[in-house]
Structure formats: structure tokens, C-alpha cells
Design a protein around this nucleic acid. Structure first.
Lengths: 105, 105
DNA sequence: ATAAAGTGAAACCGAAAGGTTTCATATCCT
DNA sequence: AGGATATGAAACCTTTCGGTTTCACTTTAT
């Protein structure tokens, strides 16, 4: 188990912008500039979101030239999965519910 | 689709106190007083957390005498489950069809 | 050598979050 | 009726959050 992370996973995925960032990084690793192009906010704001995600262990990065390539690290999501599993006996998963989620992205 | 909820599910479960509240309510419905006994904070603070959970559709309540009995409503958690499912392709291939669905929209 | 590109750090700001205390209201008990 | 119980609403405070602007640093290009 990695040392104590500065940010909680639940808190990290609470923000819609951060969830979209994870989604973007699921396809391929990307530099900050490319990522921030998908958001109406400043590059600096996106950079701070990436920091939160990194503190939660959900992304990491390596330098390439003057770029910083961010990469998805989905492992910490198992904590959410485990938490959710407890409640699964209550819910039924209908695919219809996915539609609402997809709108949100 | 249920009417627009005032609070997001992801945001609602981001707080540890609220997650504990859900867990307590999973066993049985409880009045505010009984719930707040499990926390170091004031009853009013717990009451406000319950309000957030209710706004997210994760709990509801009915009155019984002078008490307000809160009850777990786990259905909105399917949204989290669906979101999470997308990332399981990284460790589980069986969700390939789910992934295809999400990418098709 | 100099300029431009890609980025984080720092300082700052307004709004929201989480907490408390106080007060009002409804219900139960005697 | 009068007092205790259970609770939300309101007002307020402090900290955190998401955002911006400015600045410094590193790497690439000319």
C-alpha cells in the first residue's frame, strides 16, 4: 500500500472537471496543454485539478521535453468499487441508468 | 428521469461523515438523534449532512411522532457504479460490451 | 543568444462547505 | 396547561475549493 495520499479518492472524483480529465486520459496520455483545450477554464486551473488527481494517485506524469505527460492510474478506484459493493445488494443495474451518466460524461 | 436533484451523488459521497451515515442507515432507518450519537459533531451538523444526502436522493425520511426517521435510498449509487464500470476495462475484460455502449452513446 | 512554448508556483479572490450557537416549532408526557 | 424531547431554520464563522493573474523556470526553435 502506497504511503498516505494527500487527497482522498472520493473527494478527487467529486468534481466533474476531474472526472472528465480521467476520461480523457483513459484514451491516451496527454500533456497539460492538450487537456486544457477541452475545458473553458484556464490551463492553470486544469493543472491544479491534475495535481489533486495525482495526490489521490489517480494519475501520474513523466516529463517529455518541455511537456508533462499525464497518464491514468485507475488503481485507487478499487476503493470506490469496494465501498460501492456493500450497497450493491440494494440496487439493480439497469442499462437504462447508463444514459443519464453518459450525458454527464 | 427523476426531477433535477439539488446535489450531485459524487459530491454527496465525497464526505466521510456522509458515507458513514449511509452505512448506518443501511442497517435500519434511524432518527437524527440516534445517528448523531455516532459522530463527534453537533446534531445540527449531522442534520445538514442528511439534507445533502436527501438532496442527492440517497436518503429519504418520514415523520414518526416528533422524530424524523431517515432511510437509505441507494438507487442513485448506480450512477457511480456506471461511471466506475468504464474504468474496469483496465483490469477486467468482461465489461467490453459496457465500454462499447458508453463509447457509442 | 534570443525568443517562444509548456508548465508549476505563488498570491489573491469570491463562493461554497462544514461547523457552531441560538431560536422556533411540533410532539409527547405528566 | 406546562415542561421536556426531537428537530429544522437562520445567522454566523472559518476553511477549503475552484478559478484567475502574474511570474519564474526549463526546453525547444531560430
Amino acid at each position: 500500500m502506497p504511503a498516505a495520499l494527500k487527497h482522498d479518492v472520493f473527494q478527487a472524483i467529486a468534481d466533474p472537471t476531474r472526472r472528465r480529465l480521467l476520461r480523457l486520459l483513459a484514451d491516451e496520455e496527454m500533456p497539460v496543454g492538450a487537456l486544457s483545450g477541452h475545458f473553458p477554464t484556464s490551463r492553470t486551473a486544469v493543472s491544479k485539478h491534475l495535481r489533486v488527481l495525482e495526490d489521490a494517485g489517480l494519475v501520474d506524469h513523466h516529463k517529455l521535453g518541455r511537456q508533462r505527460l499525464y497518464r491514468l492510474r485507475p488503481e485507487p478506484l478499487v476503493e470506490v468499487k469496494a465501498w460501492l459493493a456493500f450497497y450493491e445488494r440494494f440496487c439493480d443495474k439497469r442499462v437504462a441508468d447508463l444514459k443519464a451518466f453518459v450525458e454527464d460524461r
